[in-house]
């Protein structure tokens, strides 16, 4: 029995089964606020592609790392631009995932049956946070070295749990090489896995929107790809006009730099609590986000009607903002007993 073909379909349409994308979704999916998650995914794709390129030139040994970053900046073809693209894509992903989390929280889209979707999203946010701090260490300038020292200090503070991050974990590979491995293999794999789960759940549970109007997913996907390409053009321009810099080779025993801006709120907390701040801050914030579906006991899912949970979220958000401002504009302090 031969395969039935449809002469009306295009070559690619038939072979790639593109009509599988023609399932109905709420028209609201193409509103800007509902595209924040898709845009986060697009920035992650940019991060993977630029990261793959950078990894061809990066040397994850302490003795060669800084020189290899300088090599990327000055000699690798398009290296300076691709590295800046990587930086701006990371910044874009952080902005988009934060806005997406706030929007989803506001709409109370984490309510039954979408708890898993929310947790997968929070997991991705946590992984992005870890990717940012591991990526910062790879610079291996003064800022990168201090980030690495924070891993060591955090590892020592948390005992067995954090043993991986201590220099004593193994003598066969330097910590920088292991952080590079985390940044380029384990964390991206987990991120892509959670992204797959997130998308699968959205496909089958649908998005939480009031819109009765429907359109086919393909139309939404075309818009999302269009917006993503515009986002790429924007970060591409930013990478030209505001390229990412590199500090001087590191000197051990001092702490004089501040971290990449998404981590500044943790830095502010460290100013108050010392090294424990880097553990407590992320644990409390992500712990709160994980607990959100369990704390919201109201039976309805009307957007904005969180009750006391809304006030608690506002308090958490305000605390992060104040800590961020303190980290950004407060004094640079030594947090570790280096």
């Amino acid at each position: 029995m031969g395969t039935r073909t449809d002469p009306k379909k295009g070559w690619l349409e038939e072979r790639a089964a593109l009509d599988a994308l023609d399932y109905p979704v709420p028209k609201a999916a193409s509103r800007w606020t509902y595209m924040l998650g898709g845009l986060t995914a697009s920035f992650i794709v940019m991060l993977v592609l630029t990261g793959l390129y950078l990894a061809q030139f990066y040397n994850p040994s302490p003795i060669g790392a800084h020189d290899s970053v300088l090599y990327i900046l000055t000699r690798a073809p398009l290296g300076d631009w691709v590295r800046s693209l990587h930086y701006w894509s990371a910044a874009g992903a952080v902005v988009m995932i934060t806005a997406h989390l706030v929007h989803v929280f506001w709409r109370r889209s984490y309510k039954r049956p979408r708890e898993l979707t929310w947790w997968a999203g929070v997991g991705m946010a946590g992984l992005l946070f870890l990717l940012i701090v591991t990526g910062s260490a790879l610079r291996y300038d003064q800022e990168g070295f201090e980030a690495l020292a924070h891993f060591v200090a955090g590892g020592e503070l948390t005992g067995t749990l954090g043993a991986f991050f201590t220099e004593g974990f193994t003598r066969s590979a330097p910590l920088l090489a292991r952080i590079f491995g985390l940044h380029t293999s384990l964390l991206p794999l987990l991120l892509v896995g959670l992204m797959g789960l997130h998308f699968w759940l959205i496909r089958h549970l649908g998005i939480h929107a009031d819109d009765e109007e429907r359109e086919v997913f393909r139309t939404h996907a075309i818009r999302l790809v269009g917006v993503s390409l515009l986002a790429f053009a924007l970060v591409g321009l930013l990478a030209v006009v505001a390229p990412e810099d590199l500090g001087y080779p590191p000197v051990a025993g001092v702490e004089i730099t501040k971290p990449f801006w998404p981590v500044l709120w943790v830095y502010g907390l460290e100013n108050l609590l010392g090294a424990w701040g880097m553990i407590l801050g992320p644990v409390l914030l992500f712990g709160f986000l994980v607990a959100v579906p369990l704390l919201d006991r109201r039976p309805d899912d009307t957007p904005g009607r969180h009750g006391w949970l809304g006030w608690l979220a506002l308090l958490v958000g305000a605390a992060v903002l104040v800590l961020w401002l303190y980290g950004a504009f407060g004094p640079a302090r030594q947090h570790l007993g280096m």
Partner: peptide, 14 residues
């Protein structure tokens, strides 16, 4: 070497 928090001057050329 003295620790420096500022950025290196980098000659970018394309």
């Amino acid at each position: 070497r003295v620790a420096r928090a500022d950025e290196m001057p980098i000659e970018r050329s394309r």
